[in-house]
C-alpha cells in the first residue's frame, strides 16, 4: 500500500494518537521561521515556496521521519542557500565548526 508513495504523502496512512498539547516555539525555531520568511520574501526572493517543499521532500525517508519540523526547515534552508549561491558549503562547515566549539567551551549564542 505504501510503495511508490512520496515521503510527504501521508494522507490516509495508519498512525497513532495525535498529541494535541500546545507547543511554545523555542527561540531557535522562531529564528528559523523568521529567516525562512525573509529569505523567501521580496526583495530577496531567493526561492519560492514550492522550491522549499521540493527540498524538504527530497530528504531521505529516514531523515524526514526522524527529524523535528524545524530541523527539516533549517536543513532545507542550508540546501537552498547553497543551491542559490548565497552561501557555500565550505563557509557553512567552517562556521558550524566554530559554533560547535563555542558551545563545547560553554559559550552562548
Amino acid at each position: 500500500m505504501t510503495t511508490n508513495r512520496a515521503i510527504s504523502d501521508l494522507g490516509g496512512l495508519p498512525a497513532g494518537p495525535i498529541d494535541t498539547h500546545e507547543h511554545e516555539a523555542t527561540l531557535v525555531e522562531r529564528r528559523i521561521d523568521a529567516m525562512m520568511m525573509l529569505l523567501r520574501a521580496k526583495p530577496r526572493a531567493f526561492w519560492v515556496t514550492d522550491e522549499n517543499r521540493r527540498t524538504i521532500e527530497s530528504l531521505t525517508p529516514e531523515f524526514y521521519e526522524g527529524s523535528a519540523y524545524y530541523e527539516r526547515w533549517v536543513t532545507a534552508m542550508r540546501a537552498l542557500l547553497i543551491e542559490k549561491g548565497v552561501l557555500d558549503e565550505a563557509e557553512i562547515e567552517a562556521k558550524l565548526a566554530e559554533v560547535r566549539a563555542r558551545y563545547a567551551a560553554g559559550g552562548a549564542a
Binding site: R31, E71, V74, T75, R78, V86, E91, L96, V99
Partner: peptide
C-alpha cells in the same frame, strides 16, 4: 536552554553567516 543539537547549531551558523 543552550542549543545542543546539530540542527540548532546549524541555525546559529546560517544566521551568523547571513
Amino acid at each position: 536552554k543552550d542549543p545542543s543539537q546539530e540542527w540548532e547549531f546549524l541555525e546559529i551558523a546560517l544566521r551568523e553567516l547571513l
